[in-house]
Simulated scan of single mutants.
Amino acid sequence: MPRFMGFVRMEEGIGTPPQSLFDAMDAHIGERAASGVFLDGGGLYGTEDAVNFVVRKGEVSRVDGPYAEAKEVVGGWSILQYDSLEDAVADQQKFAELHAEHWPEVTVISTLRQISNGPDAPGD
């Protein structure tokens, strides 16, 4: 059964989402957890405590947050499992629609990526 990683990206420092979005997401995620679709996930703190290790030309350097150049940050993540890519895409759209309905004043990018099980292409 294919597994996927979902990301939610948004502008940092835009405030707290409305309670109605938290409530809708709790119901949405609860249903998917009960059915075995939602395997794990959670929200992320801001970049003020983030640490990046940058590899450039064979050298490793550490860069601590916050990152002034960051326009969008990953605010949440999930590991999901679906019977098909089509099911995953349809459900990710429902997840994005929760944000459109409950927090329409912000721009949110909801990304879905299939998790690789090896060197083969997705779906192989």
Score class of each variant (00 low, 15 high):
Lys94Ala: 09
Ala90Val: 00
Leu21Tyr: 12
Val37His: 02
Asp87His: 02
Ile115Ser: 05
Leu39Ile: 13
Thr47Met: 12
His102Ser: 11
Gly46Pro: 14
His102Lys: 12
Glu48Tyr: 01
His28Thr: 01
Thr16Ile: 10
Met5Glu: 14
Gly76Met: 08
Val108Cys: 06
Gly46Cys: 08
Val108Tyr: 10
His102Ile: 07
Arg113Asp: 09
Ala33Val: 06
Arg62Leu: 02
Gly6Glu: 00
Gln92Thr: 03
Ala33Asn: 03
Ser78Asn: 06
Phe4His: 12
Gly36Trp: 05
Asp120Ile: 11
Gly30Trp: 00
Gly36Arg: 09
Glu69Tyr: 02
Arg113Leu: 04
Glu69Arg: 07
Gly58His: 09
Pro17Gly: 01
Ala70Trp: 04
Glu97Cys: 01
Phe38Arg: 03
Met10Leu: 14
Glu59Gly: 04
Ile14Thr: 13
Asn117His: 13
Ala27Cys: 00
Gly76Phe: 02
Asp120His: 11
Thr16Asp: 13
Val51Glu: 09
Ala70Ile: 05
Ala70His: 03
Ala24His: 02
Ala121Gly: 10
Leu39Asn: 02
His102Cys: 13
Ala33Ser: 11
Glu69Ser: 05
Ser78Glu: 05
Pro119Leu: 14
Tyr82Ala: 10
Asp124Pro: 08
Tyr82Gly: 09
Asp64Pro: 01
Glu48Met: 03
Thr107Pro: 01
Ile109Gly: 06
Gly58Gln: 05
Glu97Gln: 13
Glu12Ser: 06
Val108Ser: 08
Val8Leu: 13
Val51Phe: 03
Lys57Gln: 03
Asp64Tyr: 02
Met5Tyr: 05
Leu85His: 13
Ala121Trp: 07
Ser35Thr: 07
Pro17Trp: 15
Ala96Pro: 10
Val60Asp: 05
Asp87Asn: 05
Gly15Met: 12
Val74His: 02
Tyr45Ser: 14
Ala100His: 13
Gly58Lys: 04
